[in-house]
């Protein structure tokens, strides 16, 4: 569906992203895995159009697409933001649905699945971190864009909430929506993602399903790596 080719971003002499390439397929849950400071957020912000890239391009079905096309394909949900803090969750949903011409028909379902009905009249600034994360995920799921990029979607959620949110994201992916999730907790990533892009030090260290990454790790290390353990695979490749 989408190919990112040679994405590069520098902050002065620091290379935040160095020649990162990967593919995104329709209806999959793709995990962007990496430790803190590996460049995950930078990559998402560049893809979301809120940070300029120094080099690289995005292709769709083999042809580059414009910023306007990108705005209709990708929706980036940033982490650690408190948008419109004095407005209620209900109004934030109304606004984003109206502003982006979102999926109004899904509103009730998304509110139920993310269990935010009790929060609808609370202002966003008054929500806890986990509540805010669920409210923001609701906004992301209601957007019309075929690809949702969520930065740290499980950050601030407890175990039960993480599982519920993972199930919700997977169900929308199985309905055709593409999920691209940046996750630093590898166990969370293993639970929800179909494929992975491993990022470390601003560089892509591998891409594929877990057994493909295990094979890649084994080839590089010269010894077998457990193919069902993403943590081991990640450590071997980074």
């Amino acid at each position: 569906m989408l190919q990112a080719i040679g994405l590069t971003k520098r902050y002065g002499g620091l290379i935040a992203l160095g020649d990162v390439s990967f593919s995104v397929f329709q209806g999959e849950v793709l995990g962007l895995i990496g430790p803190n400071g590996s460049g995950k957020t930078t990559l998402f912000e560049c893809l979301g159009g809120v940070l300029p890239l120094d080099a690289g391009s995005l292709m769709r079905d083999g042809r580059p697409f414009s910023a306007r096309e990108r705005a209709s394909i990708l929706f980036y949900l940033p982490d650690a933001i408190v948008p419109w803090p004095s407005q209620s969750v209900r109004w934030a949903l109304d606004f984003t649905l109206g502003f982006f011409d979102g999926r109004t028909s899904l509103r009730g379902e998304v509110v139920d699945r993310l269990d935010i009905a009790p929060l609808l009249d609370t202002t966003i600034g008054a929500l806890s971190k986990g509540q805010r994360k669920r409210a923001l995920l609701a906004i992301g799921l209601l957007m019309p864009h075929p690809v949702l990029m969520a930065d740290e979607p499980f950050d601030g959620l407890d175990l039960r909430q993480s599982r519920d949110v993972a199930g919700t994201l997977r169900s929308y992916a199985s309905a055709g929506r593409t999920m691209f999730l940046s996750i630093h907790q590898i166990r969370d990533a293993a639970r929800v993602c179909d494929r992975f892009v491993l990022l470390s030090g601003g560089r892509a260290r591998g891409e594929g399903r877990i057994h493909e990454l295990a094979a890649l790790a084994a080839a590089r290390a010269g010894s077998a790596v457990a193919s069902d353990d993403l943590e081991e695979v990640f450590l071997a490749l980074t």
């Binding site: 809120v50 209709s72 408190v82 948008p83 803090p85 502003f99």
Partner: peptide
């Protein structure tokens, strides 16, 4: 306010 709260990052994605 939009920049401080992060709302700008969401709104900027509208063409």
């Amino acid at each position: 306010g939009d920049r401080q709260s992060g709302a700008l990052k969401i709104e900027l994605q509208h063409p």
